[in-house]
Design a binder for these strands. Sequence first.
DNA 1: GGTCAACTTTAGCCAAGACTAAAAAAAAGT
DNA 2: ACTTTTTTTTAGTCTTGGCTAAAGTTGACC
Lengths: 207, 207
Amino acid sequence: MSKTTHREDHLKALYALGHSGDSESEWVSTNQMATHLGVKPPSVTAMVHVLTELGWAEHRPYHGARLTPAGEKLALALVRKHRLWETFLVERLGFEWDEVHDIAEQLEHVDSVALVERLDQYLGHPDVDPHGDPIPKADGTFRNMEGVMPLSELGEFECAVVMGVKANDQTLSAMRDRGLGLGSKLTKNDLVTLPQAWLPQLMVKTS
Amino acid sequence: MSKTTHREDHLKALYALGHSGDSESEWVSTNQMATHLGVKPPSVTAMVHVLTELGWAEHRPYHGARLTPAGEKLALALVRKHRLWETFLVERLGFEWDEVHDIAEQLEHVDSVALVERLDQYLGHPDVDPHGDPIPKADGTFRNMEGVMPLSELGEFECAVVMGVKANDQTLSAMRDRGLGLGSKLTKNDLVTLPQAWLPQLMVKTS
DNA sequence: GGTCAACTTTAGCCAAGACTAAAAAAAAGT
DNA sequence: ACTTTTTTTTAGTCTTGGCTAAAGTTGACC
Ligand SMILES: [Mn+2]
Ligand SMILES: [Mn+2]
Ligand SMILES: [Mn+2]
Ligand SMILES: [Mn+2]
């Protein structure tokens, strides 16, 4: 990878791991980063030092790292590109939702502001990507996602609609085989029928 | 750049420089490669050794390098990707023909066979890119381009049609300002009116 | 054929990012 | 509180692809 691509992957990892909860940006441990990126901890320490030097992250030794506001802005731009490309691949090229992540992982590093903005326009300024994840706008704002929660945390309900899904490609493929997709309607009965592992992965809204 | 991207750029350079004439693949000098790629000659020598080791090029020291059949196949796949992306950028995203080369230079390195084939289908299997250059098919065959020659080599003619153009972005932009594009009709008068430097760059066919 | 200029390769160095092994710090257990 | 385990950092090495400077080769020109 280019120097830039490398830094971008670490920024994205910091962003993804720091926002896994609903709370503010959390401190992310070196081990978490290493696991997420598929490298060894010393490599992460080195890159965190670089990001700190660039003003994109701050580092408390033996405690963790997190993005600065500047780093967060860059990370959001990457997430925006990733999700726009995924949308293009599914909406225009006819890929399935379990086939696009790895390709978007490469496309997100193409450097051209004009390209991102034209792509966004071409796709009609979509709000969410094929997995129901919100696409940040150019200014970094998000679509409001309130009322959406994991199926596992839903209490009493009559009917729920799938608004998104947090799963790897293999699980996404299996869900597709069962006819699950964005907009699918679920009933109480599905709580028992579906694989239990999927319940926290299916993001739903009552209807 | 990634290891792969680097090798690919050298393969493309060998291809481009080795096919500049109409003849078979020619030996390409180290200096030519270095100039083309914007690096110093020793760097080229090193990469040529790597490509030779991989069976993609052959090297006659102090004489030059050229692609093997295996290397040529890989180079053609890259040219295919580059030109398909350029076509997408112009036809679908509305870029001008002088804005797409640098972006395609990045997109061509995205690694996914399925992506290239779906893109080709999405674009309706185009024969030529926005600059009139033929797009190799998946099997490596080309559209026949006979009858096309530089305007400077055209003898007597009544009317010629622009079939392609060999120019950098700056020149392409200037041509666009003059209303020139693929399909533009030229008359004898243009031989005097147009900038003389453009005559060998405008590929035309008599009509 | 000898000389010289141009080109190419080799030799040796640097930067970036990976790794392993060892040291240091923090957390956990008793 | 003291020991032990886990996590993180540092130290040192490897790979890849840049570079400059020096040496080698080719070929052109007398
Ligand atoms: Mn990536
Ligand atoms: Mn997604
Ligand atoms: Mn390229
Ligand atoms: Mn082109």
